[in-house]
């Protein structure tokens, strides 16, 4: 098997004196969807924030594209090809939809911007219909589509998304997750999704179970006992 695009070794991270992440080993390969599941407070968000450099890690190593990145700034990691869509609204609220997408492509090459925009509009036709609409007037589901669209425009190789399903109706979650699968298949990007929604099991290639700041298991999705995962890690 090829080398992982992202390799995390025994990282410890947290806020103030508290360590939320207590020694995590993790990896992700090019072109796969990795699900990171766990109950509230397990450390999913902290882990993603540590990967992109929003919080500093106290111990451990992060290798991305065979380079150690734990000492790098958010900007450097972003330029290397990593982007995070945080849990809260990942939009510029007072800009029209199209400008949100254009601004997200700030580090993309000029010649690929139009192509990326076409891909986003193909994936989410509603964004094309509403391209002149101010972003904060969109519905919750449309905002989430815009957020995902902005991640595509950012053209990163590894896209980290923190609980994309939160606050969305089940039907919209299903459609959104199907779109994630399309993104993976058509762009070859690596998607790492922190989730509590069981539907992640339908699209992820591998699942990491996180509990109290530690990885409890890492399995291919088809090898998982779905009922146990739902009960222990998704509050089902």
């Amino acid at each position: 098997m090829a080398e992982p695009i992202l390799r995390v070794t025994n990282i410890i991270a947290g806020y103030g004196p508290i360590s939320v992440i207590k020694g995590i080993d993790f990896n992700a390969y090019e072109g796969e969807i990795v699900g990171l599941v766990g109950p509230n407070g397990a450390g999913k968000t902290t882990f993603l924030e540590a990967l992109v450099g929003n919080i500093e890690i106290r111990e451990g190593q992060i290798h991305f594209l065979d380079k150690r990145i734990e000492g790098m700034s958010v900007m450097k990691r972003r330029k290397m090809g990593m982007v995070l869509m945080p849990q809260e609204d990942y939009i510029f609220p007072f800009m029209p939809v199209k400008r949100n997408l254009q601004v997200a492509a700030v580090l993309s090459r000029d010649e690929e911007k139009e192509e990326l925009l076409d891909f986003v509009y193909g994936l989410f036709p509603v964004l094309k219909e509403r391209e002149r609409q101010i972003a904060n007037t969109l519905s919750g589901g449309e905002r989430k589509m815009l957020s995902v669209g902005m991640c595509i425009m950012a053209n990163a190789r590894v896209v980290l998304i923190d609980e994309p399903s939160i606050g969305l109706a089940p039907k919209i979650v299903t459609a959104l997750f199907e779109n994630m699968k399309t993104i993976k298949e058509e762009t070859g990007k690596t998607l790492i999704l922190a989730e509590q929604n069981v539907k992640i099991l339908k699209i992820a290639d591998r699942i990491f179970g996180l509990e109290a700041g530690k990885i409890r298991f890492c399995e291919k999705t088809e090898d998982l006992d779905e009922a146990v995962v739902k009960e222990l890690y998704m509050g089902e």
Binding site: N54, V83, M150, A154
Partner: peptide, 18 residues
């Protein structure tokens, strides 16, 4: 546009590479 983006959502502006 970078000025506008930064004023509207600082965290996001940083994350996308502004």
């Amino acid at each position: 546009r970078s000025l506008q983006a930064t004023s509207q959502n600082l965290k996001l502006a940083t994350l996308i590479g502004i």
